[in-house]
């Protein structure tokens, strides 16, 4: 483990822990953006700069802003003030999360992982990514486009005010 990785991992984990313990929802969303920044840095470190910046573009500027708008449109006073932000079954939730983590760790250390890394001549080029997207993966691309359109229309209709 190198120092850079350790720093970035610390950033990601700080954000993730922040969003699970902070009380105010807006603070949680802001610490979610820290997680995304860390993840984007990891993507860039893993020679995928296009995806790293796409992550920032999609998540930090679109999804987070959407979430923040929703937070502001749904003021919930009882959660913001004195009632505990955690649900009644939180102990059970923690146990489930912890056991999932234990299981994952067990699997990671059991798995025959290749320790080496294949050297790349250059980071994944956008051009080859686009070529693959337009030849081999053209059907998934179309399906995703359809899905996004359907989701957008659906979201608008669901969130629209009732005429009555």
């Amino acid at each position: 483990m190198s120092l850079t990785f350790a720093i970035i991992a610390a950033i990601v984990l700080t954000g993730a822990i922040g969003l699970s313990v902070l009380r105010k929802t807006v603070h949680c969303v802001l610490s979610l953006t820290i997680v995304f920044f860390g993840l984007a840095m990891l993507y860039i470190r893993l020679d995928a700069p296009f995806l790293g910046f796409a992550l920032v573009l999609i998540y930090v500027s679109a999804v987070t802003i959407l979430i923040l708008f929703t937070v502001l449109l749904t003021r919930n006073r009882e959660i913001e003030t004195d009632v505990s932000p955690y649900s009644r079954g939180s102990i059970a939730g923690l146990i489930v999360g912890g056991s999932v983590f234990a299981g994952l760790i067990w699997m990671i250390y059991r798995a025959p992982l290749s320790r080496g890394i294949t050297e790349l001549e250059s980071p994944a080029s956008v051009k080859s990514l686009g070529e693959r997207l337009m030849t081999e993966y053209v059907l998934p691309l179309e399906v995703i486009a359809l899905l996004l359109t359907a989701a957008m229309i659906g979201a608008v209709i669901v969130a629209m005010k009732d005429p009555g």
């Binding site: 700069p49 573009l57 930090v60 080029s125």
Partner: peptide
């Protein structure tokens, strides 16, 4: 950067977050 334009817009769009904050 090979993805300079994406970088420009990704970083530029952070202004929205700052304005919200």
């Amino acid at each position: 950067l090979e993805v300079g334009l994406i970088f420009f817009f990704a970083v530029g769009s952070l202004a929205e977050l700052a304005v919200f904050m």
